[in-house]
């Protein structure tokens, strides 16, 4: 490549701008704006909801649910994943459940969880914890079991006992897999929250998307969809930033993209 034409983020800004312009043109000339509201109309709708306070409130509510469920799910999954990776007995005990529930999508459990845990926050947080847990568990376990025997034996031959091998070698060596697992789980959390809030909620971005249909406010719908995407984008970037700064020495090689 020759000299840089412009900074790398400028390319991204350019491509976003081009898409928005096409969108504006499409809704002006090609599609009925009832179905595809123009970017400006969406911005306007977002402004309305901001003024009423519904958008901010929904964002906060959805984010609370996502983050609580995500942390809860990870907090449960990481120890189990570590145990499964370390101990063949734990592995044989837990394996059937992991590989069964891994294929039961959280969305299939929305109604069941509402019956069990009510329409309140609990059912949504548990749902997201569920969606998170199996992804994080599988990643953690596979991270632990892929640590090379040479690395573990090196620690043992340097005098580490099994407890030290676990805390000083296994955990740091599996952090990249845990980190990547949590990043993947974050994306599924967004997927699940949208579905859960459509079925039973009185607030949240999924709720806005679902109810705007009643008033035929497609611009609100778009505003909520875009908010969801932006929030996901921002959380993912924050997670990556954490990986590139505080946890940098552990995560070299997995924070590239």
């Amino acid at each position: 490549m020759g000299a840089k034409l412009m900074p790398s983020y400028a390319w991204s800004a350019l491509s976003v701008a081009v898409v928005v312009i096409f969108w504006q043109m499409a809704s002006t000339w090609l599609v009925d704006p009832m179905f595809l509201p123009a970017p400006l109309a969406v911005l306007n709708g977002a402004g309305q909801m901001l003024a009423e306070g519904t958008l901010t409130q929904s964002i906060l509510v959805s984010m609370m649910r996502i983050l609580s469920g995500w942390f809860l799910g990870s907090a449960i999954a990481i120890p189990i994943g570590l145990a499964v990776g370390v101990s063949p007995v734990a592995r044989h005990l837990v394996d059937p459940f992991i590989h069964f529930f891994r294929f039961v999508p959280a969305i299939a459990l929305v109604t069941l969880f509402i019956i069990w845990f009510g329409v309140g926050e609990m059912s949504k947080i548990i749902l997201i914890a569920y969606a998170t847990a199996f992804i994080v568990m599988v990643n953690t376990a596979s991270g632990v079991s892929s640590i090379s025997q040479d690395k573990l034996n090196a620690a043992r031959c340097l005098g580490a006992n099994e407890r030290q091998v676990f805390f000083k070698v296994m955990i740091p060596a599996s952090l990249p897999s845990i980190y990547v697992g949590m990043r993947l789980a974050l994306a599924s959390s967004f997927l699940v929250i949208a579905a859960a809030e459509m079925l039973a909620a009185d607030a949240g971005l999924g709720y806005i998307i679902w109810t705007s249909r009643l008033y035929f406010q497609v611009d609100w719908m778009f505003a909520a969809i875009i908010a969801l995407g932006l929030l996901g984008f921002a959380t993912d970037r924050l997670w990556r930033l954490l990986g590139r700064t505080l946890l940098k020495r552990y995560l070299r090689g997995v924070t590239g993209y």
Partner: peptide, 30 residues
């Protein structure tokens, strides 16, 4: 079982080192 009195230098160049520790920290592991 393994014991620090019997050290081992492995053939593999990458795997035995602790990649999250600096050179000094790797050497200070024992």
């Amino acid at each position: 079982g393994p014991d620090r009195r019997r050290g081992m230098v492995f053939q593999s160049i990458e795997e035995p080192l602790f990649q999250w520790l600096t050179v000094a920290e790797n050497i200070g592991f024992g």
